[in-house]
């Protein structure tokens, strides 16, 4: 090594950095670049026409809109679940804690089939709902249900460690300063959890936007009504309209990047406020 370079105390930087770059290129960057190149085959007008066609717009609206709603529901319900799991001791707590992970572990197709049979018109939940005039399976509500199912662990697992870590002393400190229960929850506990909650929300949202397996079984897949964007990509591919498929894919990719960026910012925000150890 030349005198001008500072010798690194940890050896192997060149090797690991080289492997990292090669690996990330093969696995991530090259396929993504291919995606953009393929889209380039379309002129800007064509690209725009594909994106603004009624069917594409509706598919994107359904995917992003329902994913957003599902993530919101997961945000609220996930926090309630976390609160119960962390703050109280009850029989079966460990079991419930384990159950939260099932949507992670279950193959999405299995989840889709299970949800479909449950919410079909003659299913355990579908039948009573049908009597109330609510149809879940093969409608957008079905998509929403599947997205809620696969998203819940993201909120629970990101918020849980932070709530566990939250010192009960800060609640006592707030109480001794004259804060009532409402102030303690709204001004102390929730703001402390906020970065984790938003991270969980973003992750659940990203997962729901990209979800394919569990949704297509229950969705009914009617164009413009209950057809999600990932399915439209598959349909375009099967029609050999590759450029159309990649154009939609690019939109989803950009969305994914934005979400990841947001998550990163949230985590950095959380770090500033964490105690420097």
């Amino acid at each position: 090594m030349s005198g001008g370079l500072r010798r690194n105390t940890l050896p192997g930087f060149g090797l690991t950095m080289g492997l990292t770059l090669t690996w990330l290129s093969i696995i991530v960057l090259i396929p993504l670049a291919g995606l953009f190149l393929k889209t380039m085959e379309l002129g800007p007008d064509q690209f725009w026409a594909i994106l603004t066609s009624r069917r594409t717009l509706n598919a994107l609206k359904i995917s992003f809109g329902l994913a957003f709603c599902a993530a919101l529901v997961n945000l609220v319900m996930g926090m309630i679940v976390v609160w119960a799991l962390v703050r109280y001791r009850f029989p079966g707590r460990r079991l419930f804690d384990a159950i939260v992970d099932i949507p992670f572990a279950l193959p999405t197709a299995v989840a889709g089939v299970a949800l479909t049979s449950l919410f079909a018109q003659k299913g355990w939940l579908g039948a009573p709902l049908a009597e109330l005039g609510i149809k879940v399976a093969f409608t957008p509500i079905g998509i929403f249900v599947a997205m809620v199912f696969i998203g819940i662990p993201f909120v629970v697992r990101t918020v849980q460690p932070v709530l566990l870590d939250l010192d009960s002393e800060i609640e006592e400190a707030a109480a001794s300063l004259g804060a009532n229960r409402w102030h303690i929850v709204s001004k102390v506990i929730l703001p402390s959890l906020m970065p984790a909650v938003l991270t969980g929300f973003a992750l659940a949202f990203a997962r729901a936007v990209g979800e394919y397996g569990s949704v297509i079984f229950i969705a009914g897949n009617l164009p413009n009504v209950s057809e999600i964007a990932p399915l439209l990509i598959v349909i375009r591919l099967s029609e050999f309209r590759y450029a159309d498929a990649t154009a939609i894919a690019v939109v989803m990719l950009v969305a994914a990047f934005l979400i990841i960026f947001a998550v990163n910012r949230l985590q950095r925000w959380a770090q500033v406020r964490a105690p420097a150890q």
């Binding site: 010192d167 002393e169 800060i170 006592e172 400190a173 707030a174 109480a175 001794s176 300063l177 004259g178 804060a179 009532n180 102390v188 703001p191 402390s192 906020m194 406020r273 964490a274 105690p275």
Partner: peptide
Amino acid sequence: GAGERGVGFVFQHYALFRHM
């Protein structure tokens, strides 16, 4: 209650509100 006693309490590990 604690909040009505007019008592200031300083905790060993400070118990500051990290987000403020």
